[in-house]
Design a binder for these strands. Structure first.
Lengths: 117, 117
DNA sequence: GTAAGCAGTTACCTAAAGGTAAGCAATAAC
DNA sequence: GTTATTGCTTACCTTTAGGTAACTGCTTAC
């Protein structure tokens, strides 16, 4: 009478869901790097490209579009001559600061942990 | 006499490196889910497998090996009969708690942000 | 005695991510 | 007048991650 109540594992999907949601937005090798670069003050396409070692324009263009769709950055066209395009961080993306901080802190620590200690 | 000093972008690789280091360790769709599951109390292979929707044994086996190599979890063999195998979180991996918390918080917020508000 | 659970492994395949190299039209710099 | 810079795009190719399904030897439950 109580055979399907047998515990087969501990439920934890409610903890996994929000983490997965975030990873879906910042997934890939480049998105966080781009956000860091723009936060650091780089605004122009080529500027951002130069600031991120090994990235290429195809990938950068695609990721910038993704980030714009997710409302993390804004693309502004200044119609002077010649046209000038600027990317800026939206306030909403600044909330990713905590995520970046956590990842960064752990990375610094991990490096120490691996080399000695 | 000062032509190569022209600023071509703002340097930020020192901020990107540690983030990249962390991502290298927890990269992929499954590693954080596995850590969350084990932290929640799942220890056995099949238990972990059942607790993570849509994962399959091939991927799980591979990721568990990765996590072990990175010293985030420990695989213990109890040589009773039948053999019993348990995975446990190592103290070092607990430091990933902040990362998981940050990712989770942001995910929860993002969900609100997307649906209304 | 048959089915199910354990902890995986193997071979095979698909899809997505990412890289390479070239090119475009416009302007500005040497 | 050639070269560089800007913000991309396109076609093509390689690599990697991940998924499917079947199967192993052993054990326990029905």
């Amino acid at each position: 009478m109580e055979k399907s109540i047998r515990k087969r594992h501990t439920e934890c999907s409610s903890m996994m869901m929000p983490v997965r949601d975030t990873l879906d937005v910042i997934s890939g090798k480049w998105k966080l790097m781009i956000l860091i670069s723009i936060s650091a003050g780089n605004k122009r396409f080529r500027e951002i490209e130069r600031s991120i070692p090994k990235i290429n324009s195809k990938v950068l263009a695609k990721e910038l579009k993704d980030l714009e769709e997710h409302k993390l950055i804004k693309r502004t066209v200044f119609d002077d001559y010649p046209v000038l395009i600027e990317y800026t961080i939206l306030p909403y993306a600044e909330s990713l600061g905590d995520v970046i901080k956590a990842l960064s802190d752990w990375g610094i620590n991990h490096r120490k942990y691996i080399h000695g200690e």
